[in-house]
Computed example of a mutant assay.
Amino acid sequence: MELIVLWDIDHTLIENAGVSKEIYAAAFTALAGAGPGEPARTEGRTDRLIMRDMFQRNGIAEPDWPAVEAALTSAGADRLHDLSQRGTALPGVRDVLKEASVHSGWVSSVLTGNIAANARVKVSAFELDSLLDLSVGAYGADALQRPGLVAVARERAQRLRGVPDDVPVVLVGDTPRDVEAALATRSGIIAVASGVHSVEELAAAGAQAVLPDLTDTERVLRILETFAAH
């Protein structure tokens, strides 16, 4: 049975060890000429919203998006080595991505608030890029709000992989915003308490399945197969 599986990156697939906040700060500094007064607020937001919020909170007019995206791209590329040294792929991720990538009829990609260039930096830092079909993913420049990314990924899966438009979509993520995006688009959701949100918080947000982590490959695959069967 066919399925589109879309994985969040930060705190779902990888631990970035603070590098994400450094990327936003560096991009802000490059554009504003001075550092931000406080760190970026992330928590499942898209890069468009994260950077807009930083400029607003610091009382600075938001630059045009192409300039912001270019600054984020440069800052991310500069920190690939730091990320690979300080961060890590989370437990179980490599195994579950490998199994999903070879599962008959499944498209396994990402749905992330990161711009595409930095999403690739983050997964390639831990050699996860070969296990994901990144060309059909949805990224932080593709929509302002996270729910809008689901339609982007579905359209790319249809256009690039010939996936029918009625194939189920499942999101896998660690924040209530991942859950909200799934519920708003009638997608499946596996919430993973590998970030700052507890199992209880994610269940309260409405997640259909909540796991402490992705270490139980067989369990994750069984849950995904139940969504594929709907």
Rank of each mutant, 00 (worst) to 15 (best):
V199K: 00
A119W: 10
D166V: 08
D174F: 04
T175R: 06
L144Y: 09
S135H: 11
A182T: 15
L128E: 04
G140D: 05
D82L: 12
E99V: 09
L183N: 08
L202M: 04
P168W: 10
L131F: 06
G148S: 08
G92P: 10
D174V: 05
A204H: 11
L149Y: 14
G195W: 02
Q145L: 11
G105L: 11
D213F: 12
S84Y: 15
R177G: 00
I190L: 07
E127C: 05
Q145I: 07
S194C: 04
V179W: 14
R159K: 10
A153K: 01
G148M: 08
L134S: 09
A117L: 12
S104V: 07
R146Q: 14
S104A: 13
G173Q: 07
T215R: 10
E155S: 09
K98G: 14
S130I: 00
A125V: 13
T88D: 09
T215Y: 02
D142W: 02
R120C: 01
R159P: 02
S130V: 02
A116P: 00
Q208T: 02
P212C: 07
S84Q: 15
S130T: 06
S135D: 15
Q208N: 01
V150L: 13
V163M: 13
T112P: 09
L97I: 11
T88M: 14
A141C: 15
G206F: 03
I189D: 03
V93S: 09
L144F: 09
L214M: 07
V192K: 00
L128T: 04
D95S: 15
L128R: 06
A193C: 12
I190H: 00
P164W: 04
A117S: 15
R86A: 13
L83E: 04
R154H: 02
A143G: 11
A141Q: 15
S104K: 12
L83T: 06
A89R: 05
D142G: 01
E180F: 14
A203Q: 07
S198K: 14
R154T: 07
K98L: 13
D82N: 10
P91W: 01
R177A: 00
G87Y: 07
S101Q: 12
A89C: 06
L202C: 06
K122M: 13
L111G: 05
L183H: 05
R186S: 15
V167Y: 01
G105D: 08
V136A: 11
D213K: 12
G92A: 04
L111C: 15
L90H: 03
I189Y: 01
G105C: 09
Q158T: 02
L83A: 10
V179C: 13
A143L: 07
L97K: 09
W106H: 06
D82F: 06
T215G: 01
I190D: 04
L134A: 11
A89M: 05
R159C: 04
R146G: 10
L183Q: 08
V167C: 02
R161V: 11
L97N: 08
A157P: 05
V163H: 01
L83R: 07
G148A: 08
E180Y: 12
S135I: 02
S130L: 01
Y139Q: 00
A100Y: 00
S130A: 05
A157L: 04
P91H: 03
L90A: 08
V102K: 03
V121F: 14
T215L: 00
V170R: 07
I115C: 10
